[in-house]
Design a protein around this nucleic acid. Structure first.
Lengths: 141, 141
DNA sequence: TTCCATGCAAACACTTTGCACCGTG
DNA sequence: CACGGTGCAAAGTGTTTGCATGGAA
């Protein structure tokens, strides 16, 4: 939304480069994407950016809190913009669908973990695996 | 506990080999372990087993439901025996401590996800990242 | 004796790193 | 014009696969 990420970058001593702008834009456009998908998306909308630059930039953007990552598969991590509301993910083992869920549902759990274990849960990183409504039968997986 | 895993193996058309026995034993001894740690543990207690055999065996044992895996770090998966009670994990981002938690805490969440999203959550695979009681301050990370 | 399982080595997928050059501030 | 950022290539992890040999049933 706002463009204060430019300010944040500079305030943290980072430089504003076209690559960083392109990569942040790609992440926001894609919703959920692996480093490789971000790489492809950037290439699709403009000139190519090196893959290692994608990795380095995703790290920087995450450090600044502009994006976050979770693990929606056993393989590569997926990044998503942090400008929207915080949420966590449900992933269907069968059809791989990803459902974003409002954190309200887990607040009781978070509270209980804090009380009973003194543990502060990081909801944004949370991913719950299972089976979606269309793939209820574990047999079909 | 019981040794019916031998029966299960055979019933599923698999053969009972010393390697499979060693690897299952290692997983049970270790509690939570990556494929590499299992490999080391086997080697420590007997003659070596090939790493690729470890991977193939862990896959078989998981398919039989004898072990399970979760992701306790951004890197390698960790396997654990499934003979004990079902549980899920809390992982501290700072000190990497792993806390096993009774699934009772998440039953309300599971129920709500089923009601509102028709989603059947897989608790055994669940891992919640955050900060433990000793590392409450995100600053220290 | 029949196949499944293993060992070995090579291939893979993903990520990180060293270094010279480039371009922001 | 200094120093952080980028591209490139090579190396590093973690995992999978093809194939010949070995061993459980």
């Amino acid at each position: 939304m706002t463009e204060d990420w430019r300010v944040r970058l500079r305030a943290s001593g980072y430089r504003l480069t076209p690559q960083r702008e392109l990569i942040l834009g790609a992440v926001e456009r894609l919703g959920h994407a692996t480093p490789d998908e971000v790489h492809d998306e950037v290439r699709k909308h403009s000139s190519a950016v090196n893959l290692s630059t994608v990795y380095r930039t995703l790290e920087v953007l995450e450090e600044l809190g502009l994006i976050r990552h979770t693990h929606l598969s056993d393989r590569a991590p997926t990044y998503h913009s942090n400008t929207g509301h915080e949420h966590f993910h449900l992933v269907c083992r069968n059809c791989k669908e990803v459902i974003s869920v409002d954190p309200g549902v887990v607040l009781p759990l978070v509270a209980q973990l804090r009380e009973e274990h003194g543990f502060t849960a990081d909801i944004g990183h949370l991913t719950v695996f299972g089976h979606c409504a269309n793939c209820k039968e574990p047999e079909t997986c």
